[in-house]
Design a protein around this nucleic acid. Structure first.
Lengths: 187, 187
DNA sequence: ACCTGAACACCGTTCAAGT
DNA sequence: ACCTGAACACCGTTCAAGT
């Protein structure tokens, strides 16, 4: 699984410094904060940052990893008392909520989530699991894909960012995705 | 209505040159092409471009204006043989199709469409009209807003951009928005 | 193996000078 | 009134030199 050679002590420490600085600055100034500023706050050279995190997405994935892991775990635990549909609803809402914590994060959540970190993998696996569960239960259409989930989270998060509308709209937008805008007709 | 003083002849000509160059370059290289490159191809100074189009969005709105106008007109003409729902479907599909003509346009379509050009105004008015028509016909939920339309077009367009998936997915994604991912239950 | 930061590239935007 | 483009600001990314 983990076949990267262990980092040297100083490198490991620098990695942690970069992560703390990035997390703080993403929260303060959004996901597009200059990477130079991150390096400066971490007290390392910009080259060191690039060595550990070759892309901004990799850095975003790393600072989000714990949240993603816990989201996936929480979701798995919901099977007991949630219907498949409600579990999907909760998963989408929480993923959207996790996306809007950094201003400007929304546009790249789709890329970030494919970064291969433990948290990203866990979230992806959980999404596939929920989708399959819903389809087997007969409450989710067969032509829905996991990508549809991600697009919808992207759309919702971008919406909230642009509007500066409160988090309260998340529920409404997830509901749109689940139930559609049309009035249901019995047939 | 149009209370801007008429442009001097040379200014008017430069405006046209900038528009043609921008349109061509947006198509070739996407909506994020350097504005300096646009100015160069138009044969004007970069300052002239900024004087006419203070933001990239204003330039995008201007190059899209004719398309937006004709989209709004076509949509209005559909009332005769389309149900309110199908008219919304066609409107959303066409707006999405118009958005993906420039790579990287999707993220800003929401801003661009508020630019106040004739085409932008026409499209906005038409969207509101369709929404109201659908709600009065009882086939569109009352809690849907025009903003929901725009978000969905944004989401769909970003999806297509990221995937390089063919235009054929537009229909599927519009359908998701209209009907939701859930299997309908008669109640 | 790792770190540093100067150096380079690129783009956006303004504004003084000129017509 | 309008045009020009040099100048400035800002950021991303690389890589030679150093530990």
């Amino acid at each position: 699984m983990n076949n990267e050679p262990a980092l040297r002590a100083d490198a490991k420490k620098n990695r942690e410094l970069i992560l703390s600085a990035a997390e703080a600055l993403f929260l303060e100034k959004g996901a597009k904060v200059p990477l130079e500023e991150v390096a400066k706050r971490a007290g390392v050279g910009i080259g060191t940052l690039y060595r550990r995190f070759p892309t901004r997405e990799a850095l975003l994935a790393a600072t989000s990893d714990k949240r993603f892991l816990s989201l996936a775990e929480t979701s798995r635990a919901r099977d007991l008392d949630f219907t498949p549909s409600d579990a999907v609803r909760a998963y989408l809402e929480e993923l959207a909520r996790n996306t809007i914590i950094y201003q400007g994060f929304a546009a790249s959540i789709g890329t970030v989530i494919q970064c291969g970190t433990p948290g990203c993998n866990a979230i992806t696996a959980e999404g596939h699991r929920l989708l399959q569960r819903g389809q087997e239960a007969g409450t989710i259409r067969r032509d829905i894909t996991y990508e549809d989930f991600i697009y919808v989270v992207t759309a919702i998060s971008i919406t909230i960012e642009n509007d500066c509308s409160s988090e309260s709209r998340i529920g409404h937008l997830v509901d749109l995705f689940l139930n559609g805008i049309s009035i249901k007709v019995s047939d």
